[in-house]
Design a protein around this nucleic acid. Sequence first.
DNA 1: CAAAATTTTGGTATCGTTTGCGTAAATAAA
DNA 2: TTTATTTACGCAAACGATACCAAAATTTTG
Lengths: 344, 344
Amino acid sequence: MKYESVTIKDIAQQLNLSTSTVSRALRGSYEISSKTKKLVVDYAKKINYQPNPIALSLKERRSHSIGIIVPEIANSFFSQAIDGIESVAYKHGYHVNISQTHESFEREMINVQHMASRSMDGLLVSVSAETNDSSYLKNLHERGLPIVFFDRIIDEIDTYKVVCDNFKGAYNATTHLIKQGYKNIAHITSSSHLFITKKRLEGYKKALEDYKIKFNENLVRYCDHGGMDIEEVRNNIISLFSSKNAPDAIISAGDRITTVMISVMKNQSSIKKKIAYIGFSNSDLTDMFSPSLSVVRQPAFEMGKTAMELLIKIIESKRPIKEFETKTMESKIIIKESSLIPKK
Amino acid sequence: MKYESVTIKDIAQQLNLSTSTVSRALRGSYEISSKTKKLVVDYAKKINYQPNPIALSLKERRSHSIGIIVPEIANSFFSQAIDGIESVAYKHGYHVNISQTHESFEREMINVQHMASRSMDGLLVSVSAETNDSSYLKNLHERGLPIVFFDRIIDEIDTYKVVCDNFKGAYNATTHLIKQGYKNIAHITSSSHLFITKKRLEGYKKALEDYKIKFNENLVRYCDHGGMDIEEVRNNIISLFSSKNAPDAIISAGDRITTVMISVMKNQSSIKKKIAYIGFSNSDLTDMFSPSLSVVRQPAFEMGKTAMELLIKIIESKRPIKEFETKTMESKIIIKESSLIPKK
DNA sequence: CAAAATTTTGGTATCGTTTGCGTAAATAAA
DNA sequence: TTTATTTACGCAAACGATACCAAAATTTTG
């Protein structure tokens, strides 16, 4: 059994008109008499006519839909960003298609290709941690598919991008820990391919430098699967703490890595107590943690909004846009207990 | 500028064949010679031909896509269920469209209509807290749109449904609190329209009854916006605790309500300490709470999987299915600190 | 009142793909 | 070689909607 809906043909037949007349009447064309118009519109409403978007997409070669590619929706940052995207999209008559990569490059490629072939008018992309080859995206983009990157951007592709100030976020977080008296500050971060990983690392390094603390390569740990592989995080933590120069504080990157890290530390009795930590996170639950979690919070909703606005700008611009900019938004550092155990 | 992709026509032109031959060659029809077949297939691969799904949808009147309607994705239960749905969907070649209602009835109607008009082959629905009129869903369903409900089901619509044993979940949670010595157990729950709300309430009541505790209407509080309206939850909590017969324990329904409730209690100094509580939640973070949270956990991933399997069964069945069943899955009660402060 | 101008409507191609039907070419049987 | 069978392919319609162009129907003008 298949769901059947009313078509313009049904209306035409019923009213003894041609499909073209009906079509024009429905979109209020000036060349249709008001009698006919009324007749058609009333009847259409009566039988609850809904234009078939598939047929429209085929005809107009656009779908009034955009695609979102994110690592995962079960992540406060991304779900908040999606809410921001949707708020703008609905206002402008766009429908939104969400797809998750689960930090897998392969899944990402499949999803992006799928979106492209489904006549998405544009894509909002935050790449996966595994993505170190963006050529397929570049290809699609060069063939005219509008793309706006947010958060996990690809630096080499020339289009609009929306990020928060990752350098500053990491810098402030690190500085905060330093001021608490910590000197052995580890940085647990996402995969080294990611542009944001690099920026955050730079902020971290700069803070150390400004406070004359020697940078120690061994205190930086990458999670190439962005925290999806718990063992990877656990191994990083364990080796970090079993090394001679165990850290006394940690700054972590991203919602997932932060929470997985905390959970690993909680269950790892081998780890000495009183580690100070602060992480990038947009979760609403961090206040309920014990200790409550100090975080670097990104304006996720705003970032989503902005990204969607820029995408619409590209989609609806008459002539190809040549000059792109990267919008950088402020992150906020929120100090709670987890980083507030001053070390004398 | 618009993204253009290769069509069957391009191949036909290039190879001096008709579109029908190309089409048949690509889908391996027996009436095409193997030479031609190879020629076409090779060329198609070379220029990376991808059939246009829009055209296919129009022709076949199905999209190989299904729609998910959930209250929100920033909710562990639903995001886990979505993961389960996706895992089955991808395996069967279905694409998944997610949409959020944010617990709004109006948004839900818009989203469902949109999905239906976009030739979704079927819908997986968990209704919003505000939904107390399901006639539009019933209508669509009667017109042949395959629908499977999960979690927030509509009892009156005759189709497959997937739920967890809400009665038992609430019964066990309540019993657990009773055994800890609590007698004034409040129940903060979602909107009274929801079927699951009713079932959980029944479980709660039965537990009280079995342990000879008198049911007190005033200890049950409904959040008609499913926890999206924080003030609503706050008011419920405050009035609950300012009443003569203030509760000494709470059992809460659903991820959002549970976390909002905890957060409200945390920030409400007027509330006496040492309230025991346990909530329905699928969050992975509850262990990090202070106190760590006792929960009733639903097999969200499994529920999503099952729902998707049932939907596929409906979609792909040759003849209309007449006999539907409701799959009930076991919930699990996980005891942590929040409910473990025994009252003598 | 006829011719011209204007308004209103219908016919048809189109988007990309599949599919039933028809037919030329190739092969097999006579 | 002629006729009967296959085999291999092309034509055209269809899915639902739109848009250009032409054809009615109507109104205006001389």
